[in-house]
């Protein structure tokens, strides 16, 4: 995975597989405190207690299509290589919280990447689900919530291509105003 936005997409796909109806993604950038926190919380089926310690094992998966499950172990590796860590908290029937921490100024910390593309991909693929994205940088923040957007849209589907374009622009502008370093690959035509 080249950047954190791809890790986020991958972890949220786990939430979708766990039949979550709502996923909240929170990123806290603290350049002064040299710390970055990524949290992904869902209201899915949760992970049984006896499986929780195995979820970061790359050779453990509950799927039958193949015998490896790399998503969480790759995120753990990304966190550990810049002196951070990964925690997974889950309650069966209630949901799961994945929390990764990173040393912000570490040379090996992966860039944020194209968050707008990740969120639009999730929304297009799962228009019935609700996604909330919260990005905090120092004392400022940006919040995007599909529940509010759906209320505004009324009968217009959230996965309509023109709405998707609007969402992409809204998130990109919001994060740019926060001062986030973004990979605007697709917008620049070079993702």
């Amino acid at each position: 995975m080249q950047d954190l936005s791809l890790h986020i997409l991958d972890i949220v796909e786990n939430s979708i597989a766990a039949k979550a109806s709502r996923v909240e993604i929170r990123i806290e950038e603290d350049p002064e405190g040299n710390r970055m926190i990524l949290e992904i919380e869902d209201d899915g089926e949760g992970i049984p207690a006896h499986l929780l310690e195995k979820v970061v094992d790359p050779f453990f998966t509950t799927r039958s299509t193949r015998k490896i499950g790399l998503g969480l172990s790759l995120l753990e590796q990304a966190a550990q290589q810049c002196e951070g860590d990964l925690q997974v908290h889950s309650r069966e029937g209630e949901g799961t919280l994945v929390r990764a921490t990173f040393r912000y100024n570490h040379i090996d910390r992966k860039p944020l990447g194209d968050i707008a593309s990740t969120l639009t991909t999730l929304i297009v693929g799962n228009p019935d689900m609700d996604f909330k994205y919260v990005h905090i940088r120092s004392d400022d923040s940006f919040v995007f919530d599909t529940v509010e957007l759906k209320t505004e849209l009324g009968d217009i589907p959230i996965d309509h291509p023109k709405v998707v374009r609007f969402i992409r622009d809204e998130i990109t502008n919001g994060l740019t105003k926060l001062g986030c370093k973004l990979d605007l690959g697709l917008l620049a035509g070079e993702e």
Binding site: M1, L9, E13, D114, T120, V124, L186
Partner: peptide, 15 residues
């Protein structure tokens, strides 16, 4: 959009 698909560029394909 498995881990393998995402790492190989599935997001760009969907976009």
């Amino acid at each position: 959009m498995g881990t393998c698909g995402i790492a190989s560029g599935a997001r760009k394909v969907l976009n």
